[in-house]
Design a protein around this nucleic acid. Structure first.
Lengths: 361, 361
DNA sequence: CTGAAAGCGCTTACAG
DNA sequence: CTGAAAGCGCTTACAG
């Protein structure tokens, strides 16, 4: 047994020599190309295992058309969905032999376009995944388009020509949450809007309106408050909503952070939740389950969206697979209602029978 | 003005030709090497700007000794500190022209060593950053050692030979929090321990004990409860602690998630926080500021730790800079007490004067 | 201060 | 089914 003199990792040449084949054959086996004799393949694989050979990404990337790198761009690292997206993306990447490169970008950085350009020019990733609000940022999109990098936008405000997208039905989910509150017997349901410049705000409001309208419930303008997705804006909205002569029986906030602000305010005012006030949020953020009572909310399928996004990008780089059809480029994934302790029937009256609600559907 | 026929990005050869120099000179300029005539440098830089030339990472990596990639390994993506570490690392990487590759690993995956080996063998990153508990995982450390990858461990349980580390003073911070409660007038201070297999648990407990001892306060064993860093374990601990005949006036939990569990329990029992019970946590997690009252806690300098870690790894890969001294390999960074609304003087008695506490120091 | 040559470790395009 | 040659775009080691 010869001593392994060289300290450096084995190369494709080492494997080829030991297996008695050409490097091209080793390459074929490593890339799982068809048309290699089963016996040859087995022999190569055996040597690969013995030598613990791993193809070097930089060499593959330089010689070939793929970098095996996928980029993830995000803005606010504490945003509830970024963690889920990253988790889904990194796991799917590993399964496929890809790697995830992340970059935190400021949405209003003056040199944003250059920052993105630097990344893609240096790395030449096989694709990029963009989360809100970067997926709607003109600078970012411009840099990416010019570099011809395949992109998947996660929940963009609007679809962009030539770029794929994955999203959920924000309006539908908001409608379901509102329906839930209505079915519990609520009629005076306040709504806290999200930031006007964020894509998810409008459809969530629309969903709320739709549910109210479907059930012939009036929307009191005094019960609709403008927020900006922060905890502080939830506190402020609650300050207005809960100090009214006639308090709403339920508050539906466009996201969990604001719902937590309402919860904090309610507790400060000595209101019992959900006894005196039901509260619902949106996101199923980490904190939503770390408060009392735990928050009723909507779980966005961020993990699944990210997996689908990675999948799309891998397909986009494979010549042996048919490209995505136009409709396949835009996917809508299922969300999930998470009903927890912060919602119940209103205090004064008993809930209307579920059948009464159903009849109106 | 000639039409740019080729669609592919410019290479070092294009720049050299247009600038009228050799590719070696362009290389020198791009790498900021000394010994290039100022005029030549300016000319090259001008062409670089005109052509928007960006060196390709895979070519640099294949030819040279550096990959300009740094890896970040983490286990629980929802852990309070992972976000901060990633944020600090990605920003410092960008400043230095590096890129951050992240991978989420299961701490007890049977093929963990292989997973890590795959990553480093493919990417050959210039360094790796490990967060708890992966920085104490034998499988992970073995794969990294065998691949000769420079590593920085973030807050490891124990230092590892040949690997750098960055940490904070867990015991000191826990002592400070306990001192804070004591200075507010508390004497019966309960403590909830962290998971026994996590490195931070022991020093935080030691810090608590040290502060109690310094102030000649007895530690009632019945007021020390074993937790596991989860919200649920905080709820459970509170169930025991708060149902006692003589309730503690304050609870110090080893992390925020458990402190939030205590807060939730207290509110469910109708206790006022901090009026009836003071609560302190550890981490300054996102949720700590999203509850009422907001949690008094300790901010771990995760962002700064990550920046220092990246710095160390970049230095480790530069031949023109002296390597780190043995003591420079292990850094301890400053933490910060975050005093918020969840702590106050105990209900029955007025706080002991601050001078009384000071005298005992 | 500058450059010509070799080579990093793969894939591509082509030949058989 | 298999392989020899060229080349990807840089850096290294060396020469002047």
């Amino acid at each position: 047994m010869a001593l392994n003199i060289k300290a450096s990792p084995p190369t494709i040449t080492d494997v080829a020599a030991k297996a008695g084949v050409s490097i091209k054959t080793v390459s074929r086996v490593m890339n799982q190309e068809a048309g290699v004799h089963a016996q040859t393949r087995a022999q190569v694989l055996k040597v690969v295992a013995e030598l613990k050979y791993r193809p070097k990404q930089s060499a593959r990337s330089l010689a070939g058309a793929r970098s095996f790198l996928i980029g993830l761009l995000y803005y606010d690292p504490s945003a509830a969905f970024v963690g889920g997206v990253q988790q889904g993306a990194t796991l799917r990447c590993r399964e496929a032999g890809y790697h995830l490169v992340v970059e935190s970008l400021h949405n209003d950085a003056p040199d944003l376009q250059q920052q993105v350009d630097r990344m893609v020019s240096a790395l030449r990733p096989d694709g990029m995944i963009l989360t809100p609000p970067l997926c709607d940022n003109a600078q970012v999109l411009k840099a990416l388009r010019e570099s011809h990098t395949p992109c998947v936008l996660i929940s963009p405000a609007r679809d962009v020509k030539g770029m794929a997208s994955v999203r959920m039905d924000d309006a539908g989910a908001a409608e379901e949450i509102t329906n839930l509150l209505i079915s519990l017997g609520h009629e005076r349901i306040a709504f806290i809007k999200g930031a006007t410049d964020q894509a998810a705000s409008a459809p969530r409001y629309q969903g709320y309106l739709r549910a109210m309208k479907t059930h012939h419930l009036a929307v009191d303008p005094a019960l609709v408050h403008q927020g900006d997705f922060t905890f502080a804006s939830g506190v402020e909205a609650a300050h207005h909503l809960l100090s009214r002569r006639t308090r709403p029986g339920a508050v539906f906030a466009s996201n969990d952070d604001m719902a937590l602000g309402v919860l904090a305010s309610a507790q400060r005012l000595g209101l019992s939740v959900p006894g005196d006030l039901s509260i619902a949020g949106f996101d199923d953020s980490n904190a939503a389950g770390l408060v009392w009572p735990p928050l009723t909310t909507v779980r966005q399928p961020m993990y699944e969206m990210a997996r689908v996004a990675v999948e799309m990008l891998i397909v986009a780089n494979r010549s042996d697979v048919p490209p995505l059809t136009p409709q396949g480029l835009h996917r809508v994934l299922e969300h999930e209602l998470v009903v927890r302790g912060s919602t119940s029937a209103p205090p004064a009256k008993s809930p209307r029978p579920a059948s009464a609600v159903k009849r109106r559907h």
